[in-house]
């Protein structure tokens, strides 16, 4: 159990570091890149349930907030909600995980943008709501959706191998 959590924490740490390097810029389109952190939180929540989802969401978000230097707690709040929500869905949805992952991550990106925009408007500046209405979030949602099956596969393999 602990070994599994340690592996997931290591992956999250590596993704945070990768996403903050300029190497990440090479995979962006019109200055928008996939949010690996959100995808991994969604994948972990889907397979491990809502308790793990919200804990991993909170940890991922808080580290991302510290490194971003932005509003502390904004990503933590958002990823916690996403982790909890997807964790609840994980037990109730059946079908091909990899196809499902595209849809779940696509929708989760919009939920993320909506929560961030609302909290941004509340705590930072009213104009932050613009992030949700702007086309950039659609581009991010498509990118996240396309990449998500890979992350679901990785989390699924780790979950199965370490558990049993």
């Amino acid at each position: 159990m602990l070994k599994k959590y340690a592996i997931f924490l290591f992956i999250i740490g590596a993704l945070i570091v990768f996403q903050s390097t300029f190497v990440y810029n090479s995979i962006t389109v019109r200055d928008v890149g996939p949010d690996f952190l959100m995808i991994i939180v969604v994948a972990i929540s889907f397979f491990l349930g809502s308790v793990s989802g919200e804990i991993f969401g909170f940890i991922t978000g808080i580290i991302a907030d510290i490194i971003s230097g932005g509003l502390l707690g904004l990503s933590a709040f958002t990823y916690t909600v996403i982790g909890y929500g997807v964790g609840l869905l994980g037990n109730k949805i059946y079908g091909n995980y990899y196809i499902l992952s595209i849809f779940i991550v696509f929708v989760a990106t919009f939920v993320k943008a909506l929560i961030m925009a609302m909290l941004g408007s509340l705590f930072i500046k009213p104009g932050y709501f613009g992030f949700f209405t702007h086309g950039r979030i659609f581009l991010e949602a498509v990118m996240n959706g396309v990449i998500s099956p890979l992350f679901f596969l990785i989390v699924y393999k780790i979950e199965n191998r370490v558990t049993g």
Binding site: E54, F58, G73, A76, F123
Partner: peptide, 16 residues
């Protein structure tokens, strides 16, 4: 747990 984590995040945003 959800309420606790969201509360912590919310308080941090407020203080931030």
């Amino acid at each position: 747990l959800l309420i606790t984590l969201l509360f912590i995040s919310f308080v941090m945003m407020g203080f931030s």
